[in-house]
Write a protein that binds this DNA or RNA. Sequence first.
DNA 1: ATGAAAGCGCTAACAA
DNA 2: TTGTTAGCGCTTTCAT
Lengths: 305, 305
Amino acid sequence: MKKATIKDIAKAAGVSIATVSYILNDVKTQSISDETRVKVLKAAQQLRYVTNRTAQSLKVKKTGLIGILWFKGNDDYLWSDLKYAKTIQAIERHCSELGYHVLFMQIDNLGPSSKIIMERNLDGVFLMNVDQEQFTTISNYFGFGVPVFVVDSYIEDPLFHKIVPDFARSFQAARSLLGEAPQFLVMDSYNNAELVEFIKRQSGLDEERIHVCCDNIKDMHEFLSVYAGRPGIVLNEFLAHEAAKTHNRLAVLCTSHCPEIVPQGMAKVAFDLNDYKEIVRMMDRNIQDADEVSREKFYCLSVIT
Amino acid sequence: MKKATIKDIAKAAGVSIATVSYILNDVKTQSISDETRVKVLKAAQQLRYVTNRTAQSLKVKKTGLIGILWFKGNDDYLWSDLKYAKTIQAIERHCSELGYHVLFMQIDNLGPSSKIIMERNLDGVFLMNVDQEQFTTISNYFGFGVPVFVVDSYIEDPLFHKIVPDFARSFQAARSLLGEAPQFLVMDSYNNAELVEFIKRQSGLDEERIHVCCDNIKDMHEFLSVYAGRPGIVLNEFLAHEAAKTHNRLAVLCTSHCPEIVPQGMAKVAFDLNDYKEIVRMMDRNIQDADEVSREKFYCLSVIT
DNA sequence: ATGAAAGCGCTAACAA
DNA sequence: TTGTTAGCGCTTTCAT
């Protein structure tokens, strides 16, 4: 029970393989008589033909494959799993809409893993949660014209597109939801140190009023105890749950993309994962036009309140 | 800046492409002089050669691609996202160990989507959360010898391998952790109705003592109110959190694979995702040996207490 | 409107 | 030990 090829169709329909290819691909520059078109299509159906994308890719030098490389540093936090799970879902959904398939890979060191980009001839790549060092590693791994979009990293490198939540607007929104200036910030951690710094800056708060959460939840509660009864901002729904045990004047930025779990009555600001539709479209344009000029290299996931 | 091919290497090293192929693939049946081996390897490195897996796949008729098709019915529960995110992570990790790459796809209807299996020539497939109907759809889509492993479905079809948590043992464990017979069961829902029935049976409880959770959390609390103060079992950590608000004699089966979020002091039974190592190995064997006899078609994720 | 044929990059059987 | 070559399934140019 072997799979049918265009050759089989050609034989069955009594035409050449070129003709079959024209018809199956609906090539516009080629005119085909209705008669043969029907003949071929019928044969294709009977033989249960499906395109062999491997062969097609080899020929057209486009695989239709988008890679998602997820750097899973040491942190194995639930919030991080969920955030990226949601992100991956959004990316896959929109890639799918445009006919792309998604290769998913967790990596812990970019060197060997990033070979996948070249080996598999990925058309485009999403990099999630990479730090500066990995960034430089990968950036000289290829100037091969593969569009690379980086999620949750804040790096000034014109080679890459950057995607982050719209922190500026979300802090603003949080403040206005609180109705007063926040006194402190508790935030989740990122592999990319620059992003952490960027977030801190955006919050407008002094360093000592900011706590970056690591594995130890005790530290957070200790930090929070200083601000008892004061209003503050928490990044990510899970930390918000913890903080809610001792604080009630909180606004939470839903960086894990699960606004539904924020405790009732707590002010929340979410981000729009549907923005990935536009982002994937942009990647697609980059793929079509190798030298498409993309002015803007920063994409901010828009705020939902 | 084009990518180097074995042809380029051959030219650079002054040998034939066959020789290059032999060396790069370390073909055992072929003896190669140390001299040429070194020459070729050096050239390969200099040219930054990486295998073109597309071409290779076409030739050897193995893509090294494993598909994960995730049926995301209507339910878009957090617990479900997390459960399958964790599962996908485990599968990817172990596939990676064996040199496979993972194609990830969310589907809402199996017909068109499952074309990916044929188009991309997937070597193996994991199907997650499919119901009976989709099952039959896909099962006649191919007897193409692609090993298919089904996660969270309970169907008697010798064509597929089934993977489910070890419910029998986990109920047992839960009971003994409770120290007494559970009076009720609250469980998460699955697309696969048979699995739901199977779980109910395994619990050993009467139908009316079992509540299957849908979107409405109110229903659950209503159900629970009947059993105030009585011991019971909850499937999945998130529901456990809800239930914990009114009940304290609970044992939770961690079907979302996040035992770390079970409230302190609550009895919990988890499942071992590392079992996927063996499962993926089994799939690998099936791939190598098209007609490998696998006696056992059921895999139960083992219990951790 | 249709077909012949080259060739994408690779492997492997066969020849030398 | 090394090289020649056919061919995997497809697209596409150029003839017919």
